[in-house]
Structure formats: C-alpha cells, structure tokens
Amino acid sequence: MATFSPSASPVRLANSGNRCSGRVEMFHAGQWGTVCDDHWDLDNANVVCRQLDCGRAQSALSNAAFGPAGRGPIWLDDVYCSGNEPSISECRHLGFGVHNCGHHEDASVICEGKGVEGEVRLVNGGNNCLGRVEIFHDGQWGTMCDDLLSLDIANVVCRQLDCGRGRMILSRAAFGAGEGPIWYDDLFCIGNESSISDCRHSGLGVHNCNHNEDISVVCEGKVRLIGGSSFCSGRVEIFHFGQWGTVCDDSWDLLDAEVVCRQLGCGRVLSAPTWAHFGQGSGPIWYDNVMCTGSETKLSECRHQGIGSHNCGHVEDAGVVCEGKYRFVQYTDTTECVFEHLLICLPFSSCQLLRL
C-alpha cells in the first residue's frame, strides 16, 4: 500500500558538480540514501527541482545515469507525485526503505536551475546540448546575433555546457526566435576560451539585429553517430566516465532509434540497423537490452541493464539512420555551405534553413 510522509526530508543531487542536476539522494533516519527509478517521471523530478529551488525539471533519468551507483539505503520506491507537492517525501511511495531495487536503478534529475551571471544554455532543441543559444546577464536570459558565425563559437558554447565539441552553428533562428534582450553581436572566438563571455564582441546589449537572427548550436553531446554518410546516421556511441563506447543491439528497435534521432535533433527515425552495420566500434559497450518507449528525450532515460553491463561483442553494435532535420535551400555564389542531411553554415554565409 502506498503511504504519505507528512514531513519533508532534505534532498540533494549528487555526482554532477552542479547542485541542480545529479543522482537523487534524501536524508532520513540520520543517513543519506537514494531513490529507485520505478515509475520515475517528470512529475517526480519537478517536485525535487522545486524542493531545491532549481526551477523546472528538464529530465527524469533512470538506471543510475549519474553513476557510479549510489551507496547506503534505498529510501523510496514506486514514487508517485502529482507534481505539486512541496517535497519528494510527501509524494506517495511504498514506505521508507521498502523497495525491490538495486543501486543500478538509482533515479536522477536534471533541473533547469536558476541563472547565474555568464551562464549559457541551449533552448528549444529537446536536450541541453542543442538549441538556441541564450546567455544570462543582469538577471535576464537573452540571445546572440548570428553576425560573424564560426564553428569556434559553437566549440566554446559546447565546452562551457560540458557537451563535447561543436558540430554545427546555425543562423536565422533555426531553433525558433527568442525573446528579451540580444546580449551579443559580432562575436569572435578563437575556440579555446573557457566561456562565451571571454570572446570578443561589440559590447553587452550592443547590436543591430532582431530575434530572427538568433544563433543556434548543435554539440556533439553525450551521443553521436559514427561511420554513416552524415551526422544523422551511423553506429551509436555514448559518452560515459570520460570515454566513448557503443550500444549492444539486443532488443534494439525503431523506438530506441527514435530517441537517438530526437536527442541529436535529427528528425524522424528511418531505420535501426543491427550487427555492426556501420562497422565495429572499440572501447566499452555501455548499454545492452535497451528498452525505450519512444517518448524519452535522451537514450539515458530508457531502461537498460546498467552502464557497462552486457553479454555482447562489438559485432553487435547498434546503429541508427535518421531523416535529418534541416535541408539546404539556397546560397549565394560568394558563400560556402557544407551539407548532408544537416547543414553547417560557415563564416559569413547567407545559408537559409528549412525545417523538415
């Protein structure tokens, strides 16, 4: 029978270096413990984020996504929140310490967080590693103008977000026009700056742009496709513990591939090849027996055996083919555009994008 806990227990998010993302841990009976991911969803995550004053939830992650797995007791299982509770302990659950889980099922959360001066985020892309670039300054989120585009800008933004290298920088509000101030224009980065605020620019709030010129960025992120004909097809590789590894094709299907396509901003899925169709990878095999519903925003939100737990060889590496999300429309004779399924607009280009 589900129970309610009348008093709030302290909560923290561990193992990320950011107080607004990480493995969910709660303090009870003098000891920190974790929460099992059975029935873990965005309503539950929203309660945790609100309790920590971290804004709205962006993701509700399962399978010890912020591994290595936690220690100590597992305090809650089968948590059911409406989303309005002031604390996670006030949601329905089986009772403190009652569970049928292991720490490989520890629940995690990524919250939107409260902006701090100079912070960067990517908006409207479905995950935190692609979307419209926004910067927090003077208590307000604002955008960047697309004058003087270069991939060096994308590299700085992606590094600042811990999203790997920049894959693309897009012009003309590719992920929708923003609101509020336009903070940067005529931005020039070398590519090795630690934050976008270290790059040269016209001055905060100095610009001759409108929001139809907002910059967007696609980062390599925690998932990539290797060995295909484009950024949107290839062998699935994921980044864990500082190392790229592959996904085993046991139970691999279109629902799993659909989540990868969504995470990469690559539109609809076309196929989910198995048996190392795009060549065998190397290094660890991070996931096996992946089971997605197809609605997840990231592959890490899908169920699997646990990070690094598998019975596979690289001959079983899973692949994905997505349709791609943008196609080339037109360019002038004086510009250069590189395009496959997705478009990279190089410096000073007048490339136009059409969302498929």
Results as ranks from 00 to 15, higher is better:
residue 123 V to D: 12
residue 220 E to S: 10
residue 120 V to P: 11
residue 343 L to V: 08
residue 161 L to E: 11
residue 73 P to A: 04
residue 351 C to G: 07
residue 277 H to M: 05
residue 116 V to F: 15
residue 351 C to R: 02
residue 317 D to N: 15
residue 27 F to G: 00
residue 58 Q to G: 00
residue 101 C to K: 01
residue 106 D to V: 03
residue 64 A to C: 10
residue 137 H to E: 14
residue 233 S to I: 02
residue 293 T to Q: 14
residue 64 A to W: 10
residue 226 I to V: 15
residue 111 C to A: 09
residue 43 D to W: 06
residue 173 A to Y: 08
residue 214 D to M: 12
residue 107 A to D: 01
residue 19 R to H: 10
residue 27 F to P: 00
residue 317 D to E: 14
residue 95 G to A: 05
residue 215 I to D: 00
residue 31 Q to Y: 09
residue 217 V to A: 05
residue 138 D to V: 09
residue 114 K to L: 09
residue 175 F to Q: 02
residue 62 S to R: 14
residue 98 V to R: 02
residue 108 S to W: 09
residue 238 I to W: 08
residue 340 E to Q: 11
residue 13 L to P: 08
residue 76 L to M: 06
residue 140 Q to W: 08
residue 268 R to H: 04
residue 147 D to A: 12
residue 24 V to I: 05
residue 192 N to F: 14
residue 74 I to Y: 00
residue 60 A to F: 06
residue 279 G to T: 08
residue 204 L to Y: 15
residue 78 D to P: 11
residue 40 W to N: 00
residue 228 G to V: 04
residue 191 G to Q: 15
residue 326 Y to Q: 03
residue 196 I to Y: 05
residue 222 K to G: 09
residue 332 T to M: 06
residue 135 I to T: 03
residue 254 L to A: 13
residue 311 N to F: 08
residue 160 Q to Y: 12
residue 85 E to F: 10
residue 333 D to W: 01
residue 159 R to V: 14
residue 23 R to Y: 00
residue 261 C to G: 13
residue 32 W to A: 01
residue 51 Q to V: 12
residue 239 F to H: 15
residue 350 S to C: 03
residue 276 A to E: 02
residue 174 A to V: 02
residue 231 F to H: 14
residue 246 T to N: 12
residue 331 Y to D: 03
residue 163 C to T: 14
residue 98 V to P: 04
residue 23 R to K: 00
residue 6 P to M: 09
residue 236 V to A: 13
residue 165 R to C: 06
residue 158 C to S: 07
residue 182 I to M: 03
residue 130 L to Y: 06
residue 313 G to W: 01
residue 223 V to Q: 04
residue 256 D to E: 14
residue 215 I to G: 11
residue 63 N to A: 09
residue 144 M to Q: 02
residue 93 H to P: 06
residue 41 D to T: 05
residue 94 L to I: 00
residue 97 G to S: 07
residue 240 H to L: 11
residue 20 C to R: 02
residue 355 R to Y: 14
residue 178 G to K: 13
residue 353 L to H: 15
residue 27 F to Y: 13
residue 333 D to L: 12
residue 353 L to Y: 11
residue 309 S to L: 15
residue 262 R to Y: 04
residue 287 Y to V: 06
residue 129 C to H: 15
residue 95 G to E: 05
residue 171 S to W: 04
residue 153 I to Q: 04
residue 235 R to N: 10
residue 301 E to I: 10
